[in-house]
Design a protein around this nucleic acid. Structure first.
Lengths: 115, 115
DNA sequence: GAAACCGTAACGGAGCGTAACGGTTA
DNA sequence: CTAACCGTTACGCTCCGTTACGGTTT
């Protein structure tokens, strides 16, 4: 599979895929013209990568959690993944609390401006 | 006022202040040894800058909103400020909705892992 | 000479977007 | 020749943190 096809089939871009590749997350062979030649499994692999990135993890986390995926595309109950996801939920709670406080500040400021 | 004193009095750092300066947000004279010499008003000015940055605005926004502040440190009811703050509240709502959805996904995933 | 300030220049970070330049193959 | 792929640098973005190097004043 060529890189542009992989990008199209995963809803990503060639730039992003090269980025993941350089991070060591997307093994591929090279054809004679030096083009990257991805295996079929790369499609699912990219989806997993993007899923983890979307929940706020970085490429380093992704690298550690990719092995936790099982065949059907779900995460195995390994402690590594459980711990990281739990931590991430806490992080999200913190971020939301911060946003809430900020929003209240903005709303109060706006209210005062109207008086 | 020297830069390190200004940093201490505003809870910021010399690096940040030089950054704001380079962005044209902190007018200052230079003493003989080329040291920045900030006026007393700079203290309040830096507080206003940090306040705006903390609610998620960038330095470009800060530059446009600084003139909207009035003597007592509050924002005047100018349309520029009202509009920008309103937009920012919307942005925060969007971000929070995104975080909520992500959190639910993570929670669901964790629940499935425990089964 | 050392300590304690100040200055500028420039890399790093996270995840790509976006040129810029070049080779290959149909 | 052109089109359509691919490849590898490398800068830009956002707000500074963090060296690195150098001058001045006490």
């Amino acid at each position: 599979v060529l890189i542009s096809e992989l990008a199209a089939r995963t809803g990503s871009t060639t730039r992003a895929l090269r980025h993941y590749d350089r991070a060591g997350l997307l093994p591929s062979r090279r054809s004679v013209n030096r083009y990257r030649d991805f295996p079929e499994e790369a499609v699912e692999r990219v989806r997993r990568i993007r899923l983890l990135l979307n929940v706020g993890l970085n490429l380093e986390d992704v690298e550690r959690l990719l092995p936790c995926f099982v065949e059907d595309g779900s995460l195995a109950p390994c402690s590594v993944a459980q711990q990281r996801l739990t931590t991430q939920i806490h992080a999200i709670d913190v971020a939301m609390a911060q946003l809430c406080a900020t929003k209240r500040m903005l709303a109060d400021t706006l209210a005062q401006m109207r008086r």
